[in-house]
Design a protein around this nucleic acid. Structure first.
Length: 280
DNA sequence: ACGTTGACCTGTGTGC
DNA sequence: TGCACACAGGTCAACG
């Protein structure tokens, strides 16, 4: 579920609430979610650590802790982090409970049990493969048009597959990729290396715009995404193609179609996003 | 080296 | 209603 705008919304919610707090108690109800170290060490090392800052890299949440430790969390498809009073009833799908020193808990909820937790030293962060190979942050200065062009140039790969690749650009997922390609009027099966210079520029701008709007609307809630207070985002009300199959395109009225591209459900306006670039 | 496919695990929606 | 099946926002290992 959560892509960059959703994870960023969660990060902001957490930072507001848990900066400076200490983990008093750690309960792990589903051990395999802890990828490293062992569950025993995870619990023992996390207890007593203070949260100095909450960061984000792509779709990973990073809790920077005292003693140069970092708690890394990936929500995968259906993970949620709730900030609730310790005496609130437990949601049935709660698998990790982190009790803070202010009477509140961070509770990790995950119906599909796909999430990943790591506790590492600051200097070990790149031992997580997904972090080591992560591409640039698309909303930071490091993501330049020059970099984007070098990424596409000569690539015989569908543009959608490339945009979903976290080692190319950090944080894009299926929803925002479909939205970006629509905004740039590019068919998802076009080969990355064959986009015109105007199309590359359009797509570069679309990535930044779509992600910024997603954050502004506090994320897209189609079913499982909620922020730390359990609130939904509102960006689903602003989607142009994602999950609009059969509905008229806002630009031209043509019904939006859905097909599988790069192994993912993909939403396209066949009129605005033609398969082949016009030879004119 | 690169690109595509299946697996991970569970819940929900659809069609018969 | 019951049931089977497709599908779900992500990532990684295992293929060709």
């Amino acid at each position: 579920m959560p892509e960059l705008p959703e994870v960023e919304t969660i990060r902001r919610g957490l930072e507001e609430r848990v900066m400076g707090r200490m983990f008093e108690q750690v309960e792990v109800l589903l051990p395999y979610l802890i990828k490293s170290p062992s569950v025993g060490e995870f619990i023992q090392q996390l207890q007593g650590k203070k949260i100095e800052r909450v960061g984000r890299r792509g779709k990973y949440l990073l809790f920077f802790l005292s003693g140069e430790y970092v708690l890394v969390v990936h929500l995968r498809m259906t993970g949620q982090i709730n900030y609730v009073k310790s005496d609130e009833a437990l949601h049935q799908k709660t698998y990790i409970i982190l009790t803070l020193d202010n009477g509140y808990q961070l509770r990790y909820i995950d119906p599909r049990k796909f999430g990943m937790f790591f506790l590492l030293r600051l200097n070990q962060l790149n031992e997580i493969p997904g972090l080591r190979n992560m591409g640039p942050e698309p909303l930071e200065e490091e993501f330049t048009f020059g970099y984007f062009e070098s990424l596409l140039s000569g690539k015989k790969r569908k543009i959608k597959a490339l945009l979903l690749d976290q080692s190319a650009i950090a944080g894009l997922g299926n929803i925002y990729v479909d939205e970006c390609l629509f905004l740039a009027a590019i068919h998802p099966e076009r080969m990355a290396g064959e986009l015109t210079s105007i199309e590359r520029r359009m797509l570069f701008n679309a990535i930044k715009q779509v992600l910024r709007e997603g954050i502004m609307h506090r994320g897209t809630s189609s079913q499982d995404y909620f922020d730390v207070e359990g609130e939904k985002g509102t960006h689903q009300e602003h989607l142009k193609v994602y999950q609009r199959k059969g509905n008229p395109c806002y630009a031209c009225g043509t019904p939006i179609i859905r097909q599988v591209v790069a192994g993912r459900g993909t939403h396209i306006c066949p009129q605005c996003q033609p398969e082949k670039k016009d030879a004119t």
